[in-house]
Design a binder for these strands. Structure first.
Lengths: 120, 120
DNA sequence: CAAACATATGAACAAATGCTCATATGAAAA
DNA sequence: TTTTCATATGAGCATTTGTTCATATGTTTG
């Protein structure tokens, strides 16, 4: 009856039940993978920089390249990743393609990240 | 005077001014790097799984290993990364070490991520 | 003290990632 | 139509990353 008070790591009833309830609330394999995949997109400073530019305005690829002082190719590759993950949308206008933020979650996620790192 | 209407990508006044105002709001190099670093931590399904377990309860390493059906070593390595980035905190109790969520930002960030991927 | 258990960690290796370079696509201008 | 400009993309390479294996550290028990 007092086993609950003893902290041990070999398999005890309490732990078994706990793990059972945990596995009930764990999202499916696919969602976990998609989530990780999404955050990977935020996990690169070049892409973060691109998003910060898009917080201010809709811009074309070559302006992004100039703003971040990087190759057009490098930027274009990253924009493709951002677009695949629906963080940005694009619109062609003549020879140029303009990119903009896709939705508000992007801002919220980055804001929460900033709050986190500034809090310590 | 009508140059503003023409969309071009070689350097025009409008673009120069835009980029100037953008660079004003861009966080410093170090913060951008730290932000990317933080999101990298969320960008792995094993670590996401660990966080989901910790959403439910404070657990020890070997329970995490059993819950996720992974090596103790693998879990321990990932916990180190989570701890270095202040996403989790740990507490020793006898032979075991218990891990728990460090703060609320973790939940918010993951929730926003889930909303984003489920919206399409 | 030694033995047993829980966790941490370093080295090594395979897989993933970001950039560069060359080149392709697509649209406007000559 | 041919050239020029803006963007997209595939291959290659160096770096980073997650796991495994072996072993170290730290704590309790005998």
């Amino acid at each position: 009856m007092d086993r609950n008070e003893i902290e041990r790591c070999d398999t005890v009833e309490v732990h078994r039940e706990l793990l059972k309830s945990v596995s009930g609330k764990m999202p499916k394999e696919e969602e976990l993978y998609d989530l990780a995949e999404l955050f990977k997109v935020f996990g690169d400073s070049t892409r973060i920089r691109i998003l910060f530019v898009l917080f201010e305005a809709e811009v074309c690829v070559c302006d992004l390249a100039e703003a971040l002082n990087m190759t057009q190719s490098a930027i274009s590759h990253q924009l493709k990743i951002l677009k695949q993950n629906k963080l940005v949308r694009s619109r062609r206008e003549g020879k140029s393609v303009f990119y903009a933020l896709a939705d508000g979650h992007v801002r919220t996620i980055i804001d929460q990240g900033r709050e986190h790192i500034e809090e310590e």
